[in-house]
Design a protein around this nucleic acid. Structure first.
Lengths: 152, 152
DNA sequence: ATACAAATATTGTAATAACAAATATGAAGA
DNA sequence: TCTTCATATTTGTTATTACAATATTTGTAT
């Protein structure tokens, strides 16, 4: 559907149109990912936490570190981790140096789940974006980075 | 924050990196909008419904029409509309031709609320995207459209 | 030491989203 | 007409999110 059909107004400013376009596109993309995760009884946020922990390459991550890196910061990380623990995919322990902190590790079982999911989400993302060339993907990333005012 | 810091992995494929970048950026943008709507006790979805109804230019919209146009299709439109009715911003009546259908109108009060919000969200969106030139915004929109496989 | 503020995480709760099931109406054919 | 299927919405239920309040531990200044 064209974004003009969605917003039903040609009078909308370019920035506002862009914001709606992003939200709309991003939501469409998320729907497809959700469909892949559903058989694993995994929410997108839980999946993101697992991937963040894998990115730690064996080191634990504090709750606050996870929260910083999460795509959507507003969810409740404690309870998110609870769910992952219940599934045996992560492990939690109190930080020795600073007992206010909590260290979270991904388990072997969690790694295996991610490895099982990798080809599925990779395939999905590739198919989703197959209309864009590599150059266009680079441009899109660059524009998004610039939008967020990344220092290139 | 650079998207590489978020995903913590240089090995990620370009499509997957792009998907994460979009989700991350879009979520950041939504946070700012949410902050604006909060004093009006309005969720983003409720706000979207109001704007969809305004786009009807006096004509009512069926629930199914609203649902089609909504950015996030999964929410429960019936109860979303309930909330807006409670605030006096929309009106609901059963369609005469087809009593299965429901017609939803925006009220004068709803229009006034939107008009009050317009400059706030416009200002927000403009400030959010002020790092991108008009050409870059056009490119971004074009790439998002193409990603969604719009027939240009 | 003590008091007080800051950092970190958990818990409580109300609102919203996700999903399935139920209801009501309409359309089409035996 | 009766049955059956399709459409449109509502309702019920559980999970998740949003946000505020509450510990607990640590750091710092007196």
């Amino acid at each position: 559907m064209k974004i003009e059909d969605v917003i039903q107004s040609k009078a909308m400013s370019l920035p506002t149109k862009t914001v709606i376009n992003m939200a709309y596109t991003s939501s469409m993309v998320e729907e497809t990912i959700l469909a892949i995760l559903k058989p694993y009884d995994l929410s997108i946020q839980q999946y993101n936490v697992l991937r963040i922990l894998r990115g730690q390459k064996g080191n634990p991550a504090n709750l606050s570190t996870i929260q910083e890196r999460m795509v959507d910061r507003n969810s409740n990380t404690t309870r998110l981790v609870d769910k992952l623990i219940k599934k045996g995919w992560v492990r939690r322990q109190i930080c020795k140096n600073n007992r206010r902190k909590v260290e979270i590790f991904i388990t072997e079982k969690g790694m295996e789940t991610l490895q099982e999911l990798d080809p599925l989400t990779e395939g999905n993302n590739k198919a989703l974006l197959d209309n864009l060339s590599e150059t266009e993907l680079d441009t899109l990333n660059r524009l998004l980075d610039k939008l967020r005012k990344d220092e290139h």
